[in-house]
Write a protein that binds this DNA or RNA. Structure first.
Length: 479
RNA sequence: GGGGCUAUGGGGUAGCCUGGUAGCCUACGAGGUUUGGGACUUCGUGACCCCGGUUCAAAUCCGGGUAGCCCCA
């Protein structure tokens, strides 16, 4: 192999270089001129569209959420109506240089759209008959990070969806907030085959301005957590600040309850890190646009026969959106490597020896496992292999994640676990000062308090500060 | 937020210390021979991140900017 065509860095040795090479060389994405921005190329955007399709169909629809679009620019005054929210986001907001409103007010580029959407909501909501109001928008947002940027995982501009709903009662609101985070878990696990832990964020890590936040957390091979989706119960705080109120069934004025929730193109990065290998991208079959590539093995004497058969088979496999690479400029070996780099889940080799036996060779991208199939069974065999591959990718990643979880009973164990790139599970005091202390001493931050664990009794004292333990929680380093 | 390293055709690099003709691999275009794990060959196109300074002369030295990577908080 000529070194500079494929991936040079090794996942085990230098995950950062490796990750960048996989993203760039598989043609998902490119660096753009401005720091922290990227060009998402067709191959990368196709993955985003798969996520959008799944989301629109399986999350929006069942919840009764409609898609809409709100503006990019937010007047400073809007932004400052909710104090906690404004403070939480202030270091990351990009402001326009010019004052573009008549009043000479500064404009922010949205880091999230609560404020601009709720201004509209305050005009739209008059009575309980207007509720629930359930809207989602697909858009780009800007968070002007000063830290290191990383393709998909940490960039100054990224794409996401943000759902924003308004309810008459706390109960309805909380029910949907939970339903969304559970649906996110299903999306990430079913579609992208990334296992996640699900839970509630601590006071320190919750969304600025929220009552509480739920999140799903994935764990990358380098032991760092990747927050993959969040669902915030906003309580009534934003409603109060933005003057959203409704006349209830009792003919009295009430404040509604709200939630907001989102997933972003970061998921693409998580998927790349989780499954890909030293040969390049590995795509879970469900997100692969082209599930199959057919490579005819062409020799001088048998070329025409093999090509003809390849074309026939190509036609019967339309439902897999196959690629037929019958170009004669490259050797088969070259093509094998190329499509492995691009992450096409299945390769079919058709050569003269196979033709004689009326067979094809089917090769799985993730395991390189070869299956010989009779031509007439190809479709069935492919369906089975693709299904198995999707399951195996998830299973393997899940086993890896659980193998990394360790329990810490004292500070030393905690410290060692962070160094060993583990996910730490512990009985914890739930105090902000303790969390800040842990972050400072070890670099780890809280991930989430597992859903359902909150009702369980927690014994003993916090191993980090000695105060009585109140919750079970996960800690780790994070992106 | 603090520190370090880097930037040369589309990709990977040599040259930089000690200033003077930008070399190689790959990709790309054309031709010929090939093809079951990145084939061979001939010819050709193509580059010193940006802005300043020093100098007869800057890829090379100096200052600033931008972008990427690593480490620490």
């Amino acid at each position: 192999m000529k070194d500079n065509k494929g991936i040079i860095a090794k996942k085990e040795e230098n995950i950062s270089d490796w990750y960048e090479q996989v993203c760039l060389k598989s043609n998902l994405v490119e660096f753009a001129v401005v720091k922290g921005t990227m060009v998402i190329k067709p191959k990368g955007y196709a993955i985003w569209e798969k996520i959008q399709d799944y989301f629109n169909e399986k999350i929006n629809k069942p919840l009764g959420v409609e898609n809409a679009y709100f503006p990019l620019f937010i007047p400073e005054s809007f932004f400052k109506k909710e104090a906690e929210h404004a403070e939480g986001f202030s270091p990351e907001v990009a402001w326009l240089d010019k004052s573009l409103t008549k009043e000479g007010e500064r404009l922010a580029i949205r880091p999230t759209s609560e404020t601009i959407m709720y201004d509209s909501y305050s005009k739209w909501i008059r009575s309980y008959r207007d509720l629930p109001l359930k809207m989602n928008q697909w858009c780009n947002i800007v968070r002007w990070e000063t830290n290191t940027t990383k393709l998909f995982l940490r960039s100054r501009e990224f794409l996401w969806q943000e759902g924003h709903c308004v309810y008459e009662t706390e109960k309805e609101c909380e029910k949907d907030t939970l339903k969304v985070i559970e649906s996110y878990k299903k999306l990430v696990e079913d579609l992208l085959a990334i296992p996640v832990l699900i839970g509630r964020k601590t006071e320190k890590e919750k969304f600025a301005g929220a009552k509480h936040t739920y999140s799903i957390e994935a764990f990358m091979p380098d032991g760092k957590a990747l927050q993959c989706g969040t669902s915030h119960n906003l309580g009534q705080g934003f409603a109060k600040s933005f003057g959203i109120s409704f006349l209830g069934r009792d003919e009295k004025k009430h404040l509604p309850w709200q939630n907001s929730w989102g997933i972003s193109t970061r998921l693409i990065g998580g998927m790349v890190m989780t499954h890909s290998d030293d040969k390049g991208l590995v795509l879970p079959p469900k997100v692969a646009k082209n599930k199959v590539v057919i490579i005819p093995i062409l020799f001088e004497n048998t070329k025409e026969k093999v090509l003809k058969k390849s074309k026939e088979i190509f036609k019967t496999l339309k439902s897999f959106n196959p690629i037929l690479d019958d170009s004669e400029e490259y050797s088969p070996g070259y093509k094998f490597s190329e499509y492995e780099l691009q992450g096409i889940p299945i390769r079919i080799e058709i050569g003269p020896k196979d033709l004689e036996k009326n067979e094809v060779v089917i090769v799985r991208r993730d395991t390189k496992e070869k299956t010989i199939s009779k031509v007439k069974n190809t479709k069935n065999t492919l369906t089975k292999i693709l299904k198995k591959m999707q399951e195996d990718l998830f299973k393997r990643a899940k086993e890896e994640m659980y193998s990394k979880i360790v329990e810490a009973k004292n500070f030393k164990e905690f410290e060692k676990a962070v160094k060993d790139k583990k996910i730490i599970y512990l009985n914890w005091c739930n105090e902000k000062s303790c969390e800040e202390d842990i972050k400072e001493k070890t670099g780890a931050s809280s991930r989430c308090i597992p859903l359902g664990s909150e009702k369980q009794k927690v014994d003993g004292n916090c191993p980090m500060c000695g105060k009585p333990a109140k919750v079970k929680i996960y800690f780790s380093k994070s992106y």
